[in-house]
Design a binder for these strands. Sequence first.
DNA 1: GCTATAGTTGGTCAATCGTCCAAGGCGATT
DNA 2: AATCGCCTTGGACGATTGACCAACTATAGC
Lengths: 195, 195
Amino acid sequence: MAGPTNAERGRDVRERLLAAARELIGEIGWNAVSTRILAERAGVRSGLVHYHFASLQALLRQAATEAMRPMLEQAAELVAAAPSPGDAVEALLADIDRFTGTDPTSLLFVEAYLAATRDDLLRDQMHELVTDFRAALTAALARTGHPAPEAAATVLMAVVDGVLLHKGLDPQLSAGSLAPLLRRLADPEPNGANE
Amino acid sequence: MAGPTNAERGRDVRERLLAAARELIGEIGWNAVSTRILAERAGVRSGLVHYHFASLQALLRQAATEAMRPMLEQAAELVAAAPSPGDAVEALLADIDRFTGTDPTSLLFVEAYLAATRDDLLRDQMHELVTDFRAALTAALARTGHPAPEAAATVLMAVVDGVLLHKGLDPQLSAGSLAPLLRRLADPEPNGANE
DNA sequence: GCTATAGTTGGTCAATCGTCCAAGGCGATT
DNA sequence: AATCGCCTTGGACGATTGACCAACTATAGC
């Protein structure tokens, strides 16, 4: 019955701290996450925070990017698997309705966007995540010859984040209900001239 | 040479504090605005904050809503004055490009959205502002018989806020460049079936 | 002139903050 | 058993926080 080795316990502490940070960033806000609250949630002594991480900011940065990456990758798979661009839009919007705009996951994203405007390193890392996802979405939209797939992808991503923001104010708001309208953005042929 | 009356000076202090709050919320973040930083920016002693306002939160709440209301009202006039729904969309998006996503005004909005998820009173006030603006945008879109003007208005507002969020990561992003695509959302006739 | 009223000052209070560190614990290697 | 390296503990440090208050000043009304 060999107990956990010393290094294993260390890894566990790191993971607990990151998990606690993922929860707390959304719950109480990026700037309200303190070393002591963090350690308490993780079930760990507060002195460990600065042993395992260079600073509180570094911990929060890592927690945020590690939380967002798999979610964006999963969403990218979702749109890639859709049979048509219109279905990709629909699947993406339906996926958003898993979130209420006030849950820790939704708020983690918004908090991270905000923190990125004041942390150059975080901004670079998030920019990469967002760019990768936009590329995946652009590819999904371009399959049927969309005239401006990248612009459409940009719009859709803005809609997703914007809807999350607005859901926080109005829980009745549903992303899925906007899908019929947003299918227009996925169509290869635009809707004739405007005048 | 009658100097300012006592009540006038008090009103001036209140206005200075609110103006300082409007700047600082975006600059350093909602939770980082302290009574002392606020007072320093306003050129006022910190003891005055709790004389003129019930609490720091109440001051920030008032500053945020008073900053957002005129901007949303101006935007509502913009879309109401547009000759067609498509032009309303275009005007709205062009207006967004006045902001970079990292300026205090853009960030004030995002900070307020976030703060509203943790402050019921602020949420109610912002919900009213957003609802009023959506009504104005819906009316502008409905003028030519749009089949789902409210959904289109909801999408456009989400796009606006979402683009601001993304601009903070990528300054090259331009809302105006998305206008041609988003005009599709303003058209009264949808784009034929999808398959 | 005197008193009420509104505004202002400078400071206190307990609580919390991020960061750092000396000392000790503990599994692995020799 | 001794040593080495990673991990952990508990507390210290100065700084900052929101809130509050007694004393003081200045205007307004009588």
